[in-house]
Design a protein around this nucleic acid. Structure first.
Lengths: 258, 258
DNA sequence: CGACCTTTTGATTGGCGTCAAAATCTGTGG
DNA sequence: CCACAGATTTTGACGCCAATCAAAAGGTCG
């Protein structure tokens, strides 16, 4: 939950300094209108790694863009099992998909130290009403997110452990390179990887033990090296083949309506 | 693919006769503006059960609302396995989530005889530009669909065969009651159920053999009766409990922006 | 009636889970 | 700089859920 402690001065995250603006909700809005877009933002909030931002089923009256860091969206089942639904990286928009009572159906946790640009629902409505560019951009972002979610269904439904671990690694590794370049060392190919093996298991419906065995196999084959929250993919082509992963999905969201 | 054979006279499906308008893209548009909304529709097309409407990865220049019948969206893997991503019922909007080349990432097949209201992309853009009511509705529909998709991820990732078969049955059965009432006998509780057991397996990542065993168990416990494309749920509460299914998800999409 | 599709049943196999414990890494404070 | 607690990764033995293979039974339609 957001408390006073989380709220930072908006000045600390000015739109004009934003490195992920082009991928965000305002990605198609001309820079000259930056003051207009910034006006809609209500707050800039920070969270420390491990902080729970929102609890499944609580009501919520805002949505946000992740500016820095990494969040996970997840659900718990009665059995106590956790399913990670989505890994959120900078530029991603979060807070839609409410049920018919206006509740958000998943919990949100900061996986690493993170900063979000917050918009109250009223202001989201305003943005959409006043600016069809933003409405269209939101539709494109949603539809891009839907593609990723459907690929996850495909993974979980039909791929074996090796294939789906490879997919998760390739998807996240590629997205980090594009969305969070500060966490990616372009010289060495090493990325800061926000998920540990237990998290990966929770995203894939596997146990951490089995995830470990699969990754050990990849290391043996020389496809990647990794350690505590670090990941370096050595053979992207082979891993992509194993995963049936298509990089086209990760690039800039399609601009269907311009 | 759509051919001349599929195109029916638009008059055969007038908006004023439409029984699922309230759930569709035009659900929030006042009836007095019906002529305006109908103007955007380019074609009304019919498909027979089994017809493939669109092939994975082909380019496409339209989106549509399903008016009658039932469609499935699916992908094939290299292994030849099929994953059903979504079962489309009347009122649902289909044709977004393109990749950055404008391709649709899934195939579309008519599971039963079906009729669709087709909009070319240009007209979708026009609708959204000219009418923020429609844009907002589209955003709400997409976010509702996203919730359903995330629930599917939860099912596939963390639930066992019994739970996920129960979930699929409850989700579809409930949606048929709401979205396709002609296929639902409110006196007996019997629904026309568009998926056979092999299809259900392809939606859940299970084999048809195992789906059959699970359903046999439900029958033994007196939770449901079913036969060739028929389904009658006797004990909705027990099945919902097993499935951890929440009916709130199925009701009218949340109107977040009004 | 015969071809075909779907459902049902049985026997066997295997991929991944479960349980348990050791090894390694990380941060913290004395 | 080292000691120590806690988190994460790694390894091993064993078990089970759902897959696989195979075939029979039942429904549907021309």
């Amino acid at each position: 939950m957001i408390t006073e402690n989380n709220i930072a001065h908006s000045k600390t995250a000015d739109c004009s300094q934003c490195t992920i603006r082009s991928r965000s909700l305002f990605g198609t809005v001309d820079e000259s209108k930056m003051r207009m877009t910034q006006k809609y933002r209500d707050k800039y909030c920070r969270f420390s790694a491990g902080e729970v931002i929102h609890n499944e089923r609580d009501s919520i009256d805002y949505a946000f863009t992740l500016r820095t860091g990494c969040l996970i969206l997840y659900n718990y089942l009665d059995s106590g099992e956790r399913q990670i639904l989505r890994v959120v990286l900078p530029g991603d928009f979060v807070g839609f998909s409410r049920n018919n009572k206006g509740e958000l159906l998943y919990s949100i946790k900061a996986e690493t130290d993170s900063g979000i640009c917050l918009f109250f629902d009223d202001n989201v409505t305003k943005m959409i009403n006043e600016n069809s560019e933003i409405a269209k951009r939101l539709i494109d972002l949603q539809s891009h997110e839907m593609s990723l979610c459907q690929q996850r269904v495909l993974n979980l439904g039909q791929k074996n452990a090796t294939e789906s671990v490879a997919y998760l690694i390739m998807e996240l590794y590629s997205r980090i390179r594009v969305q969070s370049p500060d966490d990616f060392n372009f010289a060495t190919g090493e990325a800061f990887f926000p998920l540990n093996q237990a998290d990966m298991g929770d995203a894939l419906g596997l146990t951490k033990v089995h995830v470990n065995r699969v990754i050990a196999g990849f290391k043996e084959q020389g496809l990647l090296t990794c350690g505590r929250k670090k990941m370096r993919v050595i053979d992207e082509e082979s891993l992509s083949d194993i995963a049936q992963f298509d990089i086209d999905l990760i690039e800039e969201p399609f601009r269907q309506f311009i």
